[in-house]
Design a protein around this nucleic acid. Structure first.
Lengths: 241, 241
DNA sequence: TCCCTATCTTTACATCGTAAAGATCAGATA
DNA sequence: TATCTGATCTTTACGATGTAAAGATAGGGA
């Protein structure tokens, strides 16, 4: 496929290093290229994370490889290893970025809500909306098995996500959710809310709700179905399938 | 690692099926080995699917590769391609097997239930139980992006799974679920039930419910939490997070 | 008997993750 | 000022994987 893995790199004469070395390179660095790309990138780590996000949006989860990210960032294929250790490391840091975006979206959606009903529906809607807007990122966060939650950044961001959810449930039930103990009823309320929204989102992204949506009245959106799901009255019997 | 991908194969004596049988093979087929392993395996396709299931249980989803399956079955690494086309094909057929197992488990669990409450909880419990007993298979069915639902076997098995669910909801609501039209309330009930159980299962398998389970009263199992989640009364406000 | 087709094996290739060694730079040390 | 040191990035290399293509081998008719 033409580009031999390190084709486009202005500085550093790359492949011809041994051949035309003496004639091309004066002695030290070119002294003019320092503005944009010194040999030491300076902020490669962040650049790689941004590159990974672009690759993810463009080529999906399957296209997100260490080498592809390196290509996107314009560095050698082994450069990411130095900053993230291995693929798990890169995916974990990227997931942390995703969780932070996710938390920010949820928070701002909550702030914008005014009526009690809006407050109750703002979070789930924001949850699903984020997943629909960033399916690749959502996949990294919730579908991948290759995440290392012992990494502080990821652990912290994911934990914040859970805490926000539990807190919201507590506020809705108008009781305090303790840090270290839960009643079965409280735990069930949290599990119920989280399971419903997470399950709905996964089924939606996997296209498994298409069958249902197609049979609903003309023009019913996923968001409307979500609303109905969350606000529907109980039919008398327990709400199990 | 020693074995160079095709080390153990003087064409087909497999592992120990007949051990020293083929130690002296003249020229053409031994005329005695036809019973077990002639050059043409005879039922390689099914053997590969069983091998894939073993590999999946032993090495998890990450270890399930075309070549690993071929090794497990004792054939050349390219043999699976002829039967399944590519990796997507193998995964899809394996997922179909999983859906059939899954459907069978759900059906038998339903049949065993007697009281109304048991009937209501049998399916969700069987759902989660299957996922816990076969996490690899569940991952293939619901986590992988590499499935081809245009394959008839997979489409059919997955469809049966959905139909069973929708039917159960209909029976519980004591109304008929039409084949080609749903009210918003009906769709919401189906989406709610499926989302809850599916979401709960994914969170559980991903270990994301550990935080909750640890804070619940001593010895509370995931199954108990599931029960509470499905039967808990509504608190007055809509059940959103 | 001979050929045809399905089945399986060999061989080959591009890509990927990862390890290890070399090159390059920024700054501390002397 | 000159050198050393550690961090950063590149090269090179290796094994594993998915997939394509060509060769070998049966089994079943013509």
């Amino acid at each position: 496929m033409g580009k031999s893995e390190t084709a486009r790199n202005p500085r550093t004469p790359r492949k011809t290093s041994s051949a035309a070395k003496a004639q091309a390179r004066p002695a030290r660095r070119p002294a003019a290229a320092r503005t944009e790309t010194p040999y030491h990138h300076g902020a490669l780590r962040e650049a790689l994370l941004r590159a990974a996000e672009r690759v993810l949006e463009r080529d999906g989860l399957a296209g997100l490889t260490l080498r592809a990210v390196a290509r996107e960032a314009g560095v050698s294929h082994a450069a990411p290893t130095h900053h993230f250790g291995d693929l798990t490391g890169l995916l974990s840091e990227l997931a942390a970025v995703g969780f932070r975006q996710f938390n920010a979206a949820m928070a701002s959606a909550c702030d914008a809500a005014t009526t009690p009903l809006e407050r109750a529906l703002a979070r789930p809607k924001a949850y699903v909306a984020y997943a629909q807007a960033h399916p690749g990122m959502y996949g990294i966060m919730f579908r991948t098995e290759r995440l290392d939650y012992s990494r502080p950044s990821l652990h912290e961001a994911a934990e914040a996500s859970f805490a926000g959810l539990a807190n919201a449930i507590g506020m809705m039930r108008q009781e305090h959710i303790s840090e270290d103990a839960l009643t079965l009823t409280q735990g069930a309320a949290i599990a119920r809310a989280w399971s419903m929204v997470h399950g709905f989102t996964m089924l939606l992204l996997d296209g498994r709700l298409e069958d249902i949506l197609d049979r609903l009245p003309e023009g019913t959106t996923a968001e409307r179905l979500l609303e109905a799901m969350l606000t529907a009255p109980i039919t008398g019997k327990p709400t199990g399938p």
